[in-house]
Design a binder for these strands. Structure first.
Lengths: 214, 214
DNA sequence: TTTGCACTGTTATAAATTTCACAGCATCCA
DNA sequence: TGGATGCTGTGAAATTTATAACAGTGCAAA
């Protein structure tokens, strides 16, 4: 003990980067590489090598001098930190384009994190399977979430259904919500909430493009 | 002069929040509200009222004591800062689920930021229109981008086409890229790049859910 | 075997961002 | 009319995040 708990204090930004490092490392591994230098990781992620080394220091991983970091070891270590041992089950509420994009994009990528159910109100979708994910009626939300031990919900419904969807998820005992809707939601303190609005990001890019023009 | 240029030094985080404030303000306006307090905005965005006031201070906007901020004025001011006067034209490369989701989600929301073209390699899609956006062949990328004065590109192609897509965009003279692919890209310094990976965000949510469990 | 090089690991420093603390003021209420 | 209240605006402090600077080390070439 003592070591494990320090992971609780990892900076949020480091957590995000660890996930990104792993993604990059998996790619390198599939290309046959076994070791990697901090500056190589840095290049891929558009950050500095110091930052990579600092992040790895925070998780207590040491590389080999002049050989770099062992990719497989590092992947495993990152997994032991950010993954949940028993795995985490995820639901997507809203099987429109965005919901289906996420499913496509996601299935089979991480074995400790699995989308195990989709929900929609459209009768044409209910009962069907999308990339291996069964679509249920939102009326069954609570039942399915409890039965399948789903702890994370991704909201991809139309904006006007956002609030009620979030409420239903909370009522069903969800622990984390990722809201891709443009409408912010309100949840109790014990539910972890992350909101992402694509318009904001696009407006930010547009702003800096405008600025670079003067 | 002197006032305008300070907007160049606005913190990145403030820029993002301004966009979010505007989104929330537009909603309030459509509900018939004319004024709003800093703590109301803060509540919606899950931040503190101090932060809202500080952001507004940075853009030089003053509210009325005990009445709050004039919503319309604030919307206009934010627009004058983050929007480009002539408008910015955007292209989406990759008309799969994610690309179409973005188009649906976006069209008609902001008049100073418009998606004016989509691109794909699938012959079934080329020539069609999706929510009013014409889909072109990627072979025409450079031609269309130059002709329509497109300065921002959103990449939503499959991962393995990411690198070449980014290269083509840069070659076509794009100024800003928003990459929704899990594969990081590399661009010259004068192209503003923003990358967003949905898996990272989901893994982050999962991490904090796991942590809250102990 | 020595010297230089190219890495890692870490402490110290700086920059960015958020929060605290409180002054000021218009309105309400007694 | 004289608080009390409930907001705004902002300098100062705290926190978070990133960068700089450099010591240590093992390999490689001479």
């Amino acid at each position: 003990m003592g070591k494990q708990q320090t992971f609780k204090n990892l900076p949020h930004k480091t957590i995000e980067r660890l996930s990104q490092y792993r993604r990059a490392l998996l790619l390198c591994l599939s290309n046959g590489k076994t070791h990697i230098f901090s500056h190589e990781i840095a290049k891929i992620q558009h950050i500095t090598s110091v930052q990579v080394r600092r992040d790895l220091m925070l998780i207590g991983y040491s590389g080999t001098l002049r050989k770099g970091y062992n990719i497989q070891e590092l992947i495993d270590l990152i997994g032991s930190i950010i993954d949940s041992e028993e795995g985490i089950n995820v639901a997507i509420i809203g099987m429109g384009n965005l919901g289906r994009a996420l499913i496509n994009y996601f299935t089979g990528k991480r074995h400790k994190l699995e989308i195990v159910a989709g929900f929609d109100t459209n009768p044409d979708k209910i009962g069907n399977t999308f990339s291996g994910v069964q679509c249920y009626s939102v009326t069954e939300l609570e039942k399915v979430i409890r039965k399948k031990h789903i702890t994370v919900g991704i909201i991809t419904v139309p904006a006007e259904q956002t609030t009620e969807t979030a409420r239903a998820l909370v009522k069903a005992g969800i622990k984390g919500i990722l809201n891709y809707t443009p409408k912010p939601v309100d949840v109790p303190d014990d539910v972890y909430l992350e909101e992402y609005d694509m318009i904001t990001t696009l407006e930010k890019v547009a702003f800096f493009v405008k600025m670079s023009d003067e």
